[in-house]
Design a protein around this nucleic acid. Sequence first.
DNA 1: TATAGTATTGAATCCGAGC
DNA 2: CGCTCGGATTCAATACTAT
Lengths: 400, 400
Amino acid sequence: MIYNSDCLEVMKELADASIDMIYLDPPFYSQKKHSLANSKGKKYEFSDIWTSLNQYLDFMRVRITEMKRILKQNGSIFLHCDTSASHYLRILLDDIFGQNNFRSEIIWSYKRWSNSRKGLLPAHQTIFYYTKGKSYKFNRILRNYSATTNIDQILQERERNKTGKSVYKRDEFGKIVAAKEKKGVPISDVWEIPFLNPKAKERTGYPTQKPIELLERIIKISTDEGDCVLDPFCGSGTTLVSAKLLGRKYIGIDINKDAVDISQKRLEEPYKTKSVLLQVGEDAYKTKTEEELSILKQFDCEIVQRNKGIDALLRKHYFNRPVAVKIQRAHESFFEAVNLLNNASIKKGCSYGILITYETKRSDQYSIPSNIIIINRYSAQIEMELKERVISVIKQAASE
Amino acid sequence: MIYNSDCLEVMKELADASIDMIYLDPPFYSQKKHSLANSKGKKYEFSDIWTSLNQYLDFMRVRITEMKRILKQNGSIFLHCDTSASHYLRILLDDIFGQNNFRSEIIWSYKRWSNSRKGLLPAHQTIFYYTKGKSYKFNRILRNYSATTNIDQILQERERNKTGKSVYKRDEFGKIVAAKEKKGVPISDVWEIPFLNPKAKERTGYPTQKPIELLERIIKISTDEGDCVLDPFCGSGTTLVSAKLLGRKYIGIDINKDAVDISQKRLEEPYKTKSVLLQVGEDAYKTKTEEELSILKQFDCEIVQRNKGIDALLRKHYFNRPVAVKIQRAHESFFEAVNLLNNASIKKGCSYGILITYETKRSDQYSIPSNIIIINRYSAQIEMELKERVISVIKQAASE
DNA sequence: TATAGTATTGAATCCGAGC
DNA sequence: CGCTCGGATTCAATACTAT
């Protein structure tokens, strides 16, 4: 059910203790106008302009008080804030729900296109999680620690070494051994969920749209199937869509007619973007081994993914052109590697290409293009140096 | 300089506008049950709902006010909070420094052992970043592009075409226009930095100790070398150690005598601290050696700790003796490094010593012992190769 | 069809012009 | 001098195309 009205009016009609969970993403106290034109030229607008902070907080107070009334005794409320007024809103929540019923400060963090801002790039939003009472509904979400992701210190297996000291366990290759975790680990209060990308199909064109993934998580931890979810500032209806997809009942309210129309349409055909990033994780894009990364780390360079010929680009340009770096792969022959690098360098307009190779001896260097620079791996260089010395020692011994 | 006193007393003696940056990790208001008066109908003068918090906030208010006085006009303050009182402290900061001077809410997130608690695992802390004025010192820290960013974005210039669409820029011949040198992506306000592991925490006896990496970031973004950093609740002195390592002046204050003693000791020899004094565990200093570790990772070797002359030993022996590996440190001259390695190699009975150096040119190689093998870092090798090519291009151009 | 590689998209920010 | 407005710039992550 969706209502086009002030949420206060609608909530007054709702019975006491009738809602299992409330998620709200209220207008921020940002003193900004949000507007966004979608591809069809339709422009959506709403403003977060208030005469004073007190006016804003009064507005919120009466509504949050009403929310508490209609929430079930074991119900939860999630208040989504930005940084501009989060501290005032939290005091409001403390006041209405009680400090004892504060559960978590959820940090939704994401990566985003940057800008030329002086300072740190804002890349998170805060969600305050309160419950109506001490006894509340909570479903755990467990995550696996994927073996390939950066193995955290804390997650490593430990063992006693010869001297009885407790150290991180390493396998026969000296590689860190990840700790086993059978059931998975309960999620923390920091949620890294990709921001709704400009190209995402999930996008409705309505400003401040949230990713479905975020709402699904909130709904999952706080409700069961058949429970009722309320979003009093439903906007483009992400909460409602998520609720529907998860088999929850939902009530949405928005004062903006456009918002209600969009929500209604979305609900007719709930669509969740099949994000590659969400499905397989960032690691799917990272095709380099740890060893290769440790080589690249030693250059002042940008690491490049999804390109067979180029692994990285030096930050410093030569002749106004970037310089490509490639590491020879185990399955590539020397000349395959040279060709891949050379072709990609030319295509991408690089002045030089640097190839890091396995082997040292190369009698046929003449056929290497002049823009390709060959560097041997340390291990190869060292092996060669040591071999030389061994030979000279043997020779000397023989001559004596 | 470290003072054992109430920071208010010490700060009173400091001159106006004399400090470049203040980091404080004040005592939290950890009293769990502050019974808040339910101020229904009251306006949002928060002072009257703070009856139980009053004393704490008054305590903080006078000190933060004093901090503002001694801060330089372009100076910054970082206030580290936990969730229990962060909203009240932020209102204090808004009040004293002004809402306009709020810069960022930094989220320090870390992974932790899960516990069996119902609810979300707390895994972050908040740092409020304010500046004294509109014009402030800020140094960017740059990181690599996301794995999902493609190479063309990095290499090609973009522009808006007639219809306002963003397209790749082309010159009058239809050729792609190359982008300028890119320096990387500025860091965001969410910092994932591993927490000190429980073992280390236990050993220091200073439970609130913060990882050096965190403090280094704060110091780097807000100060230059030679600037003065103040930590009025310095605890075990992490801020001071970081400041010292980064070449900043520092003032630390703590009311606790033990804290001052520990800080003093750590400062006497910040590097040595890790193994001897506090036994913080290597994790605290991990950032210092990350680059070196990435070099050593490329050898089949055993990493050696706590030896100035040897960083690792090759697994493979030559002439029935191990081979030592050393990486030249930034603060070591070439011959210092050679000597350290040579002495250690002889003492430990190594057949050879391998030194990984910064620089490439070495006209005086004759004085290097024959058992020492010099390998230049990749970056140095590449720089040399590129320089050669630049010179030959210039020469050729001149001759034409 | 699967995968490597390419072209878009748009919010956030700064900067300069105009008033 | 302070404000708004348009233009330029930024990059994550998608949609799309070629192979």
